[in-house]
């Protein structure tokens, strides 16, 4: 049984009569696997991430989405997160006035409540977050500042990885996490993702470039074009795409 199972997914931007972006997408990710999705601009990569996470403004018109056998379609975004889905944003949002630490505590408390587990006490929680921040080369002072407020592009992406490691979801979707990163930040982010990987969880990497896949080795690489997966292969497919582009496939 797949950890993430997407079958015949059709989705529009906007309401039911909106423009169809995903046109019968199928994707199965087993526990312990890393899948990469590559594709040209406008192929539907970010739409897939948004539809999976339940972002308002998209409508699923056909197909099924399940995570660990739980139907995601009727769930609100926070319920999908509580079911074990995590989206690392391409453009993490700034929230002035809400400190990073406060935000992280609200998140872990909400997840603990949903899972009926004990909420971490404040002192041990702060210790854990600070330790994680240090391993990601994030200054602990960032935890006191507003969420992503005034962070550089690299700091925002590292903050996403910090959340990934803290929440430890079943399934992580990374939407172009490598965009805007210098090579050192890319390595830090990749190390964080590799630390998260284990036999029980899954990763879906959405990326434009092969470079990220030098550091996070995928089990499967897919090519998305015009709302469908048109080709799948091993990590060598990414190298081939880097050399040839997408035109030979479309």
């Amino acid at each position: 049984m797949s950890l993430l199972d997407v079958k015949d997914l059709h989705a529009n931007v906007g309401e039911e009569d909106g423009k169809e972006i995903l046109k019968g997408l199928n994707l199965q990710i087993q526990a312990g696997e890393v899948h990469a999705i590559m594709g040209p601009n406008g192929s539907g990569k970010s739409t897939l991430a948004n539809v999976l996470s339940g972002r308002p403004g998209y409508t699923v018109t056909r197909g099924t989405l399940t995570l660990d056998q739980e139907n995601l379609c009727p769930l609100e975004p926070h319920e999908r997160a509580q079911a074990g889905l995590f989206l690392a944003f391409q453009y993490p949002v700034e929230i002035p006035g809400v400190s990073n630490m406060e935000f992280l505590k609200a998140s872990t408390d909400s997840l603990a409540k949903a899972h009926e587990t004990e909420q971490p006490d404040a002192a041990s929680f702060i210790r854990e977050v600070r330790t994680l921040a240090e391993t990601l080369d994030l200054d602990p002072q960032f935890l006191k500042r507003g969420v992503n407020e005034g962070f550089s592009g690299g700091e925002k992406k590292r903050n996403e990885i910090l959340q990934l490691l803290l929440i430890n979801p079943k399934m992580a979707i990374l939407d172009e996490t490598d965009s805007g990163l210098d090579i050192d930040a890319l390595k830090v982010v990749a190390e964080g993702v590799n630390r998260y990987r284990n036999a029980q969880n899954g990763v879906l990497l959405i990326t434009h470039y092969q470079r990220l896949l030098d550091y996070i080795i995928p089990d499967v690489v897919h090519v998305l074009a015009d709302g469908q997966i048109i080709q799948s292969g091993d990590k060598n497919l990414a190298l081939e795409l880097e050399a040839k582009g997408y035109t030979w496939l479309t």
Binding site: H78, L87, I95, A106, S110, A114, I167
Partner: peptide
Amino acid sequence: FYLCSRGVA
């Protein structure tokens, strides 16, 4: 949406 995507109601 950002907050909700982290499980916050």
